[in-house]
């Protein structure tokens, strides 16, 4: 084979690979990015229905309750401004506590209940889930503008 056509084939396959990889990455991004919304945004109807996203905030004090079956947990997550009711089936992380930060991932039903498939609590007592902190800060800023 001539060096020239060999070069062309090499270059061609490299470009094809790169295009393929980029396409793969982009579609994977499109389908699998999990967006994050604060309880305030969810309450304002800015969150999608029937698509997976995350909410972060504090677990509302006194809101944790288990259904009679023992597996399903109900609680509410708040950014101090708005409260979103959540249900989750399964075991909660050991760090999950009322009044502490948590992030939940799942879908919102049309009647405003958030059905979580994943509950992420903070890993140690110093570390607040970033997203939970972010939600609080947002609400905090919102409060400010109202106050002054």
């Amino acid at each position: 084979m001539k060096p020239r056509s060999k070069r062309l084939i090499l270059l061609g396959s490299a470009v094809a690979l790169l295009v393929g990889a980029v396409a793969l990455v982009l579609t994977a991004f499109q389908q699998n990015l999990v967006f994050f919304h604060t309880p305030t945004e969810v309450a304002a109807g800015k969150a999608p229905v029937e698509r997976v996203f995350r909410i972060g905030g504090l677990v509302e004090e006194g809101s944790i309750a288990r259904n009679d079956d023992g597996y399903t947990v109900r609680f509410a997550i708040t950014d101090t401004a708005q409260v979103i009711p959540v249900t989750y089936r399964g075991s909660l992380p050991s760090m999950f506590q009322e009044g502490k930060g948590a992030v939940v991932q799942g879908k919102l039903t049309s009647d405003g209940l958030f059905v979580a498939t994943e509950v992420l609590a903070k890993h140690d007592e110093n570390y607040m889930p970033v997203e939970a902190q972010y939600a609080l800060d947002k609400a905090h800023q919102a409060n400010q503008t109202v106050q002054y």
């Binding site: 994977a28 389908q31 699998n32 967006f35």
Partner: peptide, 18 residues
């Protein structure tokens, strides 16, 4: 530009085929 997270599904969808 907002907060997102890229979870295991993304990595599996790109890692496995490559």
């Amino acid at each position: 530009l907002g907060k997102i997270s890229v979870g295991p599904p993304y990595f599996e969808a790109t890692f496995v085929p490559l």
